[in-house]
Design a binder for these strands. Structure first.
Lengths: 202, 202
DNA sequence: AAATTAAAATACCGAGCGGTATAAAAATGA
DNA sequence: TCATTTTTATACCGCTCGGTATTTTAATTT
């Protein structure tokens, strides 16, 4: 908004690499216990001083919100795109299951879903982060519901249930699968569970 | 083993009420964030001094293990009994679903299952507690598997899957439901989800 | 009554936490 | 050259944590 990214700053040039810090923090929260991971530890791992981190993100809540927003952009939005494709319900469902039971979307990303992890540890999050997670929840449910509605219109959704409930059901199963993966369960088993749980849908 | 419960102790008589402390701790862990609940807080709530608590339970790990053992005795064992009843698979399944989606088994117990909660926060538990949780996991899976096997023999289990996998599937669904309840979701919705997820079993 | 035993409560320990005051360092404009 | 601006790193604050050393209290045994 106000600052030109090229070079018309006055003071000492900043060396803090925001993206690097976010990468480190995202992986840390993704792999570890969100509630037990301290800011000090993030500083240590990213090689950034504590005041530097506070200037960039205000506080722990700010960092975590930035992390979940980044996760949304990098991981969740592609899934949402997938749900809007013109493929059949079954094809999209298979893609969804494959995505949910494999690593996030990058080279060496941890098992499970950071968003699911944050949902589960709601009570340990700051205000801003919790609000963002809540927003993502609503987006996910809406995306599932619209997908089901479109599939119903195409006659590809067989189960006798409201789109609202179907969305809740799909969300619950995907979250559960992500949770199991994060706990270290065998991805093949988790995938099989999802297949059975979705077998009556279409 | 060595001490007679009546009265042949020598020193100052103990006033610490072990059961009271366990009641307080169980409710605290059940309702709150296990990883964030401090021993200091348990002491405060139970009105017991910290050294008193350490004398009785050795350390935090000892207290948490005592709590989960108590939970097993009070809540989990009755469920295991239920799985061994002579009722039909459907009847038992309905009982299981009703149990899982209502309060634990007592008057004012919180939503969800303490065992499930501890499974989810494995990494934050001490050694002894984690070992006990692992033991309970194996017991639960074995109980489910034997239940399915007996139901198959009676021709009441319709789905085409191994008893091993069926047990894993049932366990995953029950855990997921408990998790949703603990997060505050509507028990009616959760029950409906379980019904759908179990609709193809028998 | 004196010695002994065990449980009680107070007060403390080192460590780590989220967060910040402070001052040195590195760039700019005059 | 020198003041100004901005970022940096060190060192610190108050607090809570899990766990314990210490002393007082209340009972039994001799």
């Amino acid at each position: 908004m106000s600052s030109d990214p090229t070079k018309l700053s006055r003071g000492r040039p900043k060396t803090l690499d925001r993206d690097h810090v976010l990468d480190v923090a995202m992986e840390a929260y993704w792999k570890g216990d969100i509630g037990s991971l301290s800011l000090n530890e993030i500083c240590r791992r990213s090689g950034v001083s504590k005041p530097g981190l506070y200037r960039e993100f205000s506080n722990e809540d700010g960092l975590m919100k930035a992390v979940i927003v980044r996760y949304q952009e990098q991981v969740l939005n592609p899934v949402q795109q997938m749900l809007q494709s013109e493929n059949s319900f079954r094809e999209t469902l298979d893609s969804l299951v494959s995505f949910a039971t494999s690593t996030g979307c990058q080279h060496d990303s941890p098992m499970g879903c950071l968003f699911t992890k944050m949902r589960e540890s709601r009570t340990q999050l700051g205000e801003a982060t919790r609000a963002q997670v809540y927003l993502l929840e609503e987006q996910a449910l809406a995306a599932f519901r619209q997908w089901v509605e479109r599939s119903k219109a195409k006659g590809e959704f067989a189960a006798d249930m409201s789109s609202e409930f179907a969305a809740t059901y799909i969300d619950a199963q995907i979250s559960s699968a992500s949770s199991q993966l994060a706990r270290g369960e065998d991805p093949k088993i988790v995938k099989k569970i999802l297949s059975v749980a979705f077998s009556m849908l279409g």
